[in-house]
């Protein structure tokens, strides 16, 4: 049996002793075989514990990497009741499932223009999805990103911009060269919406056109468009905070109207825009 207590030896091995204490223990250990062997065993255990905990961490990192590589189609349904009524920055779910919006919305977060939310589910990290409108199809991930982004898109972003573009035809041409030739840039002046600018954003690595309008008052309204690759005709809708979306497909382009309007106002505006686009 060592003259030094196990607790002291462990503290010594762990490097938790003050210098003079450590020197004293070291002096004893060097000349005491029992203590020496004990310290060697503790050092092995110490190193093994560190390795094992590091392996646990790698496991969790790998899980998240795998989740981030999953396609958006695997996203599970959310539990709307679990997030309804909670503050926008405090939405966490504990239901099982895979990643929702992790890649795209996380990128949006990093860009500072999005408002994603963490979710922790069954070994994966998620960024929360907004509440889906009842009795409607689950909205695709990119549409939710749009709603999240729109929530951070203030009036000032357009008012102070030097990039407001005066020529809608030129803007349409530029956007269409990226999104697709059938892209429409509707004139909404009759609806009291002044075209301000068009720009290309990215969601999950794919380009999305953002066409911005300003009403006489209130926050901007935006129409987003992206090339539709899967032909899903019913794109659903959702709400995220004050922002609501309406989405539809037209000539291979998926459009999403995003605005802080009431449900009836959204329905009415979406129908008018659909009509304008169809007539162009």
């Amino acid at each position: 049996m060592s003259e030094l207590s196990d607790e002291l030896l462990v503290a010594y091995v762990d490097g938790q002793l003050a210098r003079d204490q450590s020197t004293a223990v070291k002096g004893v250990v060097e000349f005491d075989d029992v203590s020496n062997k004990r310290v060697a065993g503790l050092r092995r255990a110490n190193a093994r514990l560190e390795e094992a905990f590091e392996a646990m961490l790698r496991e969790h990192r790998d899980e998240e990497d795998e989740v981030e590589e999953q396609p958006a189609e695997v996203e599970p349904d959310v539990a709307p009741a679990a997030i309804a009524g909670q503050s926008a920055l405090a939405v966490f779910l504990s239901n099982h499932g895979a990643l929702v919006l992790a890649g795209g919305a996380f990128a949006v977060l990093l860009l500072g223009v999005g408002a994603g939310y963490l979710i922790n589910t069954g070994g994966t990290v998620q960024v929360t999805q907004p509440v889906a409108a009842p009795n409607k199809p689950q909205a695709p991930a990119w549409q939710k990103e749009i709603a999240l982004t729109q929530g951070m898109f203030g009036r000032e972003a357009l008012e102070v911009s030097l990039e407001s573009q005066a020529n809608p035809d030129l803007v349409r041409f530029q956007l269409a060269s990226v999104i697709g030739p059938s892209l429409a840039l509707p004139d909404l002046e009759p609806e009291g919406l002044r075209f301000m600018r068009g720009q290309i954003l990215r969601s999950s690595g794919e380009p999305i056109a953002q066409i911005s309008y300003l009403p006489e008052q209130g926050p901007p309204i935006a129409l987003y468009a992206k090339a539709d690759s899967n032909g899903q005709t019913d794109l659903g809708s959702l709400s995220q905070g004050d922002v609501r979306t309406r989405a539809w497909l037209h000539e291979g382009i998926a459009y999403v109207l995003a605005a802080a309007l009431s449900e009836p106002e959204m329905d009415a505006l979406a129908e008018k825009i659909k009509g304008v686009i169809a007539s162009q």
């Binding site: 646990m56 961490l57 969790h60 996380f106 977060l109 994603g116 963490l118 922790n120 990290v125 960024v127």
Partner: peptide
């Protein structure tokens, strides 16, 4: 939120 996301593997452990 970003800090939490970055830390999540450690928090989960």
């Amino acid at each position: 939120r970003t800090q939490l996301i970055e830390m999540l593997p450690r928090l989960r452990r």
